[in-house]
Design a protein around this nucleic acid. Structure first.
Length: 271
DNA sequence: ATGGGCACCTGGCTGC
DNA sequence: TGCAGCCAGGTGCCCA
Protein backbone atom coordinates (compact mmCIF):
# COMPACT_ATOMS: atom_id res chain seq x y z
CA UNK A 1 0.00 0.00 0.00
CA UNK A 2 2.11 2.80 1.21
CA UNK A 3 4.86 4.75 -0.43
CA UNK A 4 6.11 8.01 1.01
CA UNK A 5 2.97 10.04 0.21
CA UNK A 6 0.70 7.49 1.85
CA UNK A 7 2.92 7.32 4.92
CA UNK A 8 3.08 11.11 5.13
CA UNK A 9 -0.71 11.29 4.71
CA UNK A 10 -1.03 8.81 7.55
CA UNK A 11 1.37 10.83 9.69
CA UNK A 12 -0.58 14.02 9.16
CA UNK A 13 -3.82 12.20 9.84
CA UNK A 14 -2.81 10.64 13.15
CA UNK A 15 -0.51 13.33 14.53
CA UNK A 16 -3.19 15.69 15.90
CA UNK A 17 -4.83 12.79 17.75
CA UNK A 18 -1.57 11.55 19.25
CA UNK A 19 0.58 14.54 20.11
CA UNK A 20 0.75 15.18 23.88
CA UNK A 21 -1.66 12.32 24.59
CA UNK A 22 -0.78 9.84 27.28
CA UNK A 23 -0.69 6.11 26.54
CA UNK A 24 -3.00 4.20 28.87
CA UNK A 25 -2.24 0.72 27.48
CA UNK A 26 -0.51 -1.08 24.64
CA UNK A 27 -2.20 -4.19 23.25
CA UNK A 28 -0.45 -6.61 20.90
CA UNK A 29 -2.88 -9.00 19.24
CA UNK A 30 -0.39 -10.51 16.81
CA UNK A 31 3.29 -10.37 17.51
CA UNK A 32 4.42 -11.96 14.24
CA UNK A 33 4.94 -9.02 11.91
CA UNK A 34 7.98 -8.73 9.62
CA UNK A 35 9.95 -8.86 12.84
CA UNK A 36 8.40 -9.77 16.16
CA UNK A 37 6.85 -6.74 17.83
CA UNK A 38 9.24 -5.58 20.55
CA UNK A 39 8.28 -7.30 23.83
CA UNK A 40 7.35 -5.31 26.92
CA UNK A 41 5.76 -2.34 25.14
CA UNK A 42 2.91 -1.99 27.60
CA UNK A 43 5.30 -1.68 30.52
CA UNK A 44 7.58 0.67 28.59
CA UNK A 45 4.93 3.06 27.25
CA UNK A 46 2.06 3.04 29.73
CA UNK A 47 1.75 6.53 31.19
CA UNK A 48 4.13 8.06 28.62
CA UNK A 49 3.13 11.02 26.48
CA UNK A 50 3.55 11.08 22.70
CA UNK A 51 5.94 13.96 22.12
CA UNK A 52 6.00 13.93 18.31
CA UNK A 53 4.95 11.90 15.27
CA UNK A 54 7.66 12.02 12.65
CA UNK A 55 8.49 10.28 9.39
CA UNK A 56 11.79 9.05 8.00
CA UNK A 57 11.49 7.58 4.49
CA UNK A 58 8.51 5.21 4.84
CA UNK A 59 8.95 4.76 8.58
CA UNK A 60 6.77 6.50 11.15
CA UNK A 61 8.45 7.49 14.41
CA UNK A 62 6.38 7.96 17.55
CA UNK A 63 8.58 9.85 19.96
CA UNK A 64 8.28 9.45 23.69
CA UNK A 65 10.55 10.81 26.42
CA UNK A 66 11.72 7.27 27.12
CA UNK A 67 12.21 6.07 23.53
CA UNK A 68 10.79 5.82 20.02
CA UNK A 69 8.32 3.47 18.40
CA UNK A 70 9.46 2.78 14.82
CA UNK A 71 6.55 1.64 12.66
CA UNK A 72 6.45 0.52 9.04
CA UNK A 73 3.29 -0.26 7.09
CA UNK A 74 4.83 -2.79 4.71
CA UNK A 75 2.74 -3.46 1.61
CA UNK A 76 -0.70 -3.65 3.14
CA UNK A 77 -0.67 -1.86 6.48
CA UNK A 78 -2.67 1.11 7.68
CA UNK A 79 -2.96 3.04 10.91
CA UNK A 80 -6.23 4.49 12.06
CA UNK A 81 -7.39 6.50 15.03
CA UNK A 82 -10.70 5.20 16.36
CA UNK A 83 -12.90 5.34 19.44
CA UNK A 84 -11.58 2.79 21.92
CA UNK A 85 -14.79 0.77 21.89
CA UNK A 86 -14.51 0.08 18.14
CA UNK A 87 -14.55 -3.70 17.63
CA UNK A 88 -11.35 -5.29 16.39
CA UNK A 89 -11.14 -6.16 12.72
CA UNK A 90 -9.38 -9.13 11.24
CA UNK A 91 -5.65 -8.27 10.97
CA UNK A 92 -5.71 -5.62 13.70
CA UNK A 93 -2.35 -6.55 15.21
CA UNK A 94 -1.37 -3.73 17.49
CA UNK A 95 -2.94 -0.81 19.33
CA UNK A 96 -2.03 2.13 21.52
CA UNK A 97 -4.81 3.16 23.84
CA UNK A 98 -4.81 6.86 24.68
CA UNK A 99 -6.12 9.01 27.52
CA UNK A 100 -8.40 10.73 25.00
CA UNK A 101 -10.55 7.61 24.78
CA UNK A 102 -9.21 6.98 21.31
CA UNK A 103 -6.98 4.21 20.09
CA UNK A 104 -4.34 3.97 17.36
CA UNK A 105 -4.70 0.64 15.53
CA UNK A 106 -2.37 -1.05 13.09
CA UNK A 107 -4.13 -3.30 10.59
CA UNK A 108 -1.90 -5.23 8.19
CA UNK A 109 -3.21 -8.31 6.33
CA UNK A 110 0.14 -9.36 4.90
CA UNK A 111 2.12 -8.64 8.07
CA UNK A 112 5.06 -7.14 6.18
CA UNK A 113 4.87 -4.13 8.47
CA UNK A 114 6.80 -3.70 11.68
CA UNK A 115 6.55 -2.17 15.09
CA UNK A 116 9.84 -1.83 16.93
CA UNK A 117 10.81 0.12 20.01
CA UNK A 118 14.17 1.65 20.76
CA UNK A 119 15.44 3.74 23.63
CA UNK A 120 18.45 4.83 21.58
CA UNK A 121 18.60 7.49 18.85
CA UNK A 122 16.26 6.02 16.20
CA UNK A 123 18.25 7.52 13.34
CA UNK A 124 21.05 5.14 14.37
CA UNK A 125 18.75 2.11 14.32
CA UNK A 126 19.94 -0.50 11.85
CA UNK A 127 16.80 -0.06 9.72
CA UNK A 128 17.23 3.72 9.44
CA UNK A 129 20.92 4.45 9.62
CA UNK A 130 21.79 3.64 5.99
CA UNK A 131 18.77 5.28 4.34
CA UNK A 132 19.24 7.80 1.55
CA UNK A 133 18.42 11.49 2.12
CA UNK A 134 14.77 12.54 2.19
CA UNK A 135 13.67 13.25 -1.41
CA UNK A 136 11.70 16.34 -0.36
CA UNK A 137 14.56 17.92 1.56
CA UNK A 138 17.08 20.29 -0.02
CA UNK A 139 19.96 17.80 -0.44
CA UNK A 140 18.08 15.76 -3.03
CA UNK A 141 18.68 17.11 -6.53
CA UNK A 142 20.11 16.29 -9.95
CA UNK A 143 23.69 16.49 -8.71
CA UNK A 144 22.96 13.95 -5.97
CA UNK A 145 21.20 11.61 -8.37
CA UNK A 146 24.01 11.94 -10.89
CA UNK A 147 26.60 11.14 -8.26
CA UNK A 148 24.92 8.00 -6.94
CA UNK A 149 24.20 6.58 -10.38
CA UNK A 150 27.69 6.91 -11.85
CA UNK A 151 28.94 3.36 -11.53
CA UNK A 152 25.57 1.62 -11.54
CA UNK A 153 24.67 -0.62 -14.44
CA UNK A 154 21.32 -1.48 -12.90
CA UNK A 155 18.15 -0.24 -14.64
CA UNK A 156 17.16 3.21 -13.41
CA UNK A 157 13.71 1.96 -12.37
CA UNK A 158 15.30 -0.61 -10.05
CA UNK A 159 17.74 1.94 -8.69
CA UNK A 160 14.81 4.17 -7.73
CA UNK A 161 13.58 1.36 -5.47
CA UNK A 162 16.93 1.04 -3.66
CA UNK A 163 16.36 2.76 -0.33
CA UNK A 164 20.05 3.25 0.32
CA UNK A 165 20.24 5.52 -2.73
CA UNK A 166 16.70 6.93 -3.06
CA UNK A 167 14.08 6.81 -0.39
CA UNK A 168 10.31 7.12 -0.36
CA UNK A 169 9.84 6.04 -3.98
CA UNK A 170 8.03 2.74 -4.39
CA UNK A 171 6.70 0.81 -7.34
CA UNK A 172 3.94 3.25 -8.29
CA UNK A 173 5.89 6.49 -8.07
CA UNK A 174 9.00 5.00 -9.71
CA UNK A 175 7.05 4.45 -12.94
CA UNK A 176 5.26 7.78 -12.58
CA UNK A 177 8.45 9.79 -11.99
CA UNK A 178 10.19 8.19 -14.99
CA UNK A 179 7.23 9.06 -17.20
CA UNK A 180 7.26 12.66 -16.03
CA UNK A 181 11.03 12.84 -16.66
CA UNK A 182 10.67 11.23 -20.13
CA UNK A 183 13.16 8.49 -19.23
CA UNK A 184 12.85 4.80 -20.14
CA UNK A 185 12.77 2.52 -17.10
CA UNK A 186 15.30 0.07 -18.58
CA UNK A 187 18.03 2.64 -19.11
CA UNK A 188 21.21 1.80 -17.20
CA UNK A 189 21.38 4.20 -14.27
CA UNK A 190 24.88 5.31 -15.18
CA UNK A 191 23.80 6.27 -18.71
CA UNK A 192 21.73 9.19 -17.44
CA UNK A 193 23.20 12.60 -18.15
CA UNK A 194 23.31 15.31 -15.51
CA UNK A 195 20.40 17.00 -17.25
CA UNK A 196 18.38 13.80 -17.16
CA UNK A 197 19.22 13.31 -13.49
CA UNK A 198 18.03 16.83 -12.82
CA UNK A 199 14.76 16.13 -14.65
CA UNK A 200 14.30 12.89 -12.75
CA UNK A 201 15.05 14.38 -9.34
CA UNK A 202 12.57 17.18 -10.07
CA UNK A 203 9.99 14.67 -11.29
CA UNK A 204 10.36 12.61 -8.11
CA UNK A 205 9.87 15.68 -5.95
CA UNK A 206 6.89 16.83 -8.00
CA UNK A 207 5.12 13.50 -8.07
CA UNK A 208 5.60 12.84 -4.33
CA UNK A 209 4.50 16.37 -3.41
CA UNK A 210 1.47 16.24 -5.67
CA UNK A 211 0.43 12.88 -4.21
CA UNK A 212 0.80 14.18 -0.64
CA UNK A 213 -1.35 17.20 -1.48
CA UNK A 214 -4.28 14.99 -2.44
CA UNK A 215 -3.85 12.37 0.28
CA UNK A 216 -1.91 9.69 -1.58
CA UNK A 217 -2.93 7.06 -4.08
CA UNK A 218 -5.80 4.72 -3.41
CA UNK A 219 -5.31 1.21 -4.68
CA UNK A 220 -7.40 -1.63 -3.46
CA UNK A 221 -7.99 -1.19 0.24
CA UNK A 222 -5.85 1.78 1.11
CA UNK A 223 -7.43 4.41 3.32
CA UNK A 224 -5.80 7.21 5.26
CA UNK A 225 -5.84 7.63 9.01
CA UNK A 226 -9.35 9.06 9.00
CA UNK A 227 -10.61 6.34 6.72
CA UNK A 228 -10.95 8.51 3.65
CA UNK A 229 -9.48 7.57 0.29
CA UNK A 230 -6.60 9.31 -1.47
CA UNK A 231 -7.18 10.92 -4.83
CA UNK A 232 -3.86 10.60 -6.63
CA UNK A 233 -5.00 7.57 -8.55
CA UNK A 234 -6.81 9.84 -11.00
CA UNK A 235 -3.49 11.52 -11.75
CA UNK A 236 -1.50 8.40 -12.57
CA UNK A 237 -0.09 8.56 -16.10
CA UNK A 238 1.15 5.00 -16.50
CA UNK A 239 0.78 2.82 -13.38
CA UNK A 240 -1.72 0.00 -14.00
CA UNK A 241 -2.58 1.53 -17.38
CA UNK A 242 -1.13 -1.22 -19.62
CA UNK A 243 -2.69 -1.08 -23.09
CA UNK A 244 -4.53 2.17 -22.39
CA UNK A 245 -3.64 5.23 -24.44
CA UNK A 246 -0.94 7.50 -23.03
CA UNK A 247 -2.60 10.56 -21.57
CA UNK A 248 -0.09 12.71 -23.42
CA UNK A 249 0.35 11.09 -26.86
CA UNK A 250 -2.26 8.29 -27.07
CA UNK A 251 0.37 5.55 -27.65
CA UNK A 252 -0.59 2.40 -25.71
CA UNK A 253 1.16 2.15 -22.35
CA UNK A 254 3.48 -0.84 -22.02
CA UNK A 255 3.93 -3.12 -19.04
CA UNK A 256 7.20 -4.95 -18.47
CA UNK A 257 8.72 -6.87 -15.56
CA UNK A 258 11.83 -5.68 -13.76
CA UNK A 259 13.09 -7.36 -10.61
CA UNK A 260 9.92 -9.50 -10.52
CA UNK A 261 7.73 -6.40 -10.35
CA UNK A 262 5.65 -4.55 -12.92
CA UNK A 263 6.89 -1.40 -14.60
CA UNK A 264 4.73 0.79 -16.85
CA UNK A 265 5.92 3.30 -19.42
CA UNK A 266 5.05 5.08 -22.65
CA UNK A 267 7.33 3.93 -25.49
CA UNK A 268 6.77 7.22 -27.31
CA UNK A 269 7.16 9.77 -24.49
CA UNK A 270 10.04 8.02 -22.69
CA UNK A 271 13.42 7.55 -24.37
C1' DA B 1 30.88 -3.20 -4.15
C1' DT B 2 27.19 -4.56 -7.02
C1' DG B 3 23.31 -7.02 -8.51
C1' DG B 4 19.93 -10.76 -8.75
C1' DG B 5 16.71 -13.52 -6.50
C1' DC B 6 14.22 -15.08 -2.57
C1' DA B 7 11.88 -14.59 1.54
C1' DC B 8 8.22 -13.03 4.59
C1' DC B 9 2.34 -13.10 4.33
C1' DT B 10 -2.86 -12.76 3.01
C1' DG B 11 -6.38 -11.88 -0.17
C1' DG B 12 -8.49 -10.92 -4.54
C1' DC B 13 -9.07 -12.07 -9.13
C1' DT B 14 -8.98 -15.19 -13.32
C1' DG B 15 -9.61 -19.19 -15.67
C1' DC B 16 -10.32 -24.08 -15.85
C1' DT C 1 -18.63 -23.90 -6.59
C1' DG C 2 -13.89 -25.17 -5.99
C1' DC C 3 -9.37 -24.74 -6.61
C1' DA C 4 -4.84 -23.67 -8.66
C1' DG C 5 -2.17 -20.03 -10.20
C1' DC C 6 -0.89 -15.43 -10.38
C1' DC C 7 -0.57 -10.80 -8.79
C1' DA C 8 -0.29 -6.91 -5.31
C1' DG C 9 1.80 -0.53 -2.65
C1' DG C 10 8.27 -3.15 0.74
C1' DT C 11 12.73 -4.36 1.78
C1' DG C 12 16.33 -7.20 4.34
C1' DC C 13 19.31 -10.80 3.45
C1' DC C 14 21.95 -14.37 1.11
C1' DC C 15 24.67 -15.64 -2.62
C1' DA C 16 27.33 -15.14 -6.91
Amino acid sequence: MPELPEVETTRRGIEPHLRSRRVTAVLVHERRLRWPVTPGLDAALRGQRVRAVERRAKYLLLRFDCGTLIMHLGMSGNLRVLPQATPLLKHDHFELQLDSGQVLRLNDPRRFGSCLYTTADPTLHRLLRDLAPEPLEPGFDGAYLHRVTRRRRVAIKLLLLNGRLITGVGNIYASEALFRAHIRPRRAARSLSLAECARLAAAIRRVLSAAIRVGGTTLRDYVGADGEAGYFRQKLYVYERAGLPCRRCRTPIRQITQGQRSTYYCPQCQQ
